[in-house]
Design a binder for these strands. Sequence first.
DNA 1: CAATATAGGTCAAGTTAGTTGACCTATATC
DNA 2: GATATAGGTCAACTAACTTGACCTATATTG
Lengths: 153, 153
Amino acid sequence: MTDQNDYSLILFHFAYKTFINTADEIIEKHGMSRQHHRFLFYISKMPGISVKELLDFLEITKQGSHRTLSKLKEESLIEEAQSKQDKRVKNLYATKKGEELVKVLNKEQNKMLANILNTVGTDWFKVMEAYANQREGFKSIKAKYQLQHEEDL
Amino acid sequence: MTDQNDYSLILFHFAYKTFINTADEIIEKHGMSRQHHRFLFYISKMPGISVKELLDFLEITKQGSHRTLSKLKEESLIEEAQSKQDKRVKNLYATKKGEELVKVLNKEQNKMLANILNTVGTDWFKVMEAYANQREGFKSIKAKYQLQHEEDL
DNA sequence: CAATATAGGTCAAGTTAGTTGACCTATATC
DNA sequence: GATATAGGTCAACTAACTTGACCTATATTG
């Protein structure tokens, strides 16, 4: 295998950066961090998920989730209910306030993908490049060092 | 806009996690971190890049790059040369040792994408789902809470 | 030529998003 | 009754940053 594909590794990196930055700016305005958004998002997607399931899903330890979960409860963005089948288990739900916030936070990310799909279609390379091209540094330096996908040569 | 697209946000998150984890495990075996890999990778892709260009490209401050760059020099994975046009500027290059290491570190990531493209084609949703499906937690919880792309309904 | 800007380096302190380890309670299962 | 599991909490540590301050060397500009 030649290193022709390395360009896709670059695309993945910069595409993700655009994706994550899009939300970060809005999240910050609401006094939250990326992790708060992530937790709130997944709890709203999976109403009634247990703490353990959530941690397994996100692949983090309970200690790593502690502050974030506490803050979301404090701010009344999520709430917990004791499971009737197993009283040890706590089921997590987003509150109305939480649902509303998560909608706002997701809006820009959804909008960006919709725009990109409308513009370049659904080809993986085209989509990722459309994301990556929104990084100023990427665009200028890419040209200078002729970083590109093999098919474009 | 409905929240149908939120599934793509989930895909992006888990796909990236698979992508980044694939390299992390190998990087760790070589006594390096993700940032060392990233710096070495981009310097090898853009031989002669200046420190400033690299920092602009990666969107980090020079303070944030200091230790990593020092370590890469210490380990003789990169080297620097004073620019002849502008003596303030340092041009960065990967050494032979650096080039060899970065090839090893990239191999699995390239292989995974090649496999995925061979298996599912180049559709963005299919590719991202193939990445995401490699997360055990994602696969099991996804089924339970019926997370899916609208087209699959 | 002197003033200022730029490239690069380095120290200190703070933040986010985690980690491992230890230890606690409540409930469930063997 | 012993053990396992769900959840909580404290402490100490790490990676990958950040901002701010201050330094040198070289280049550009008035």
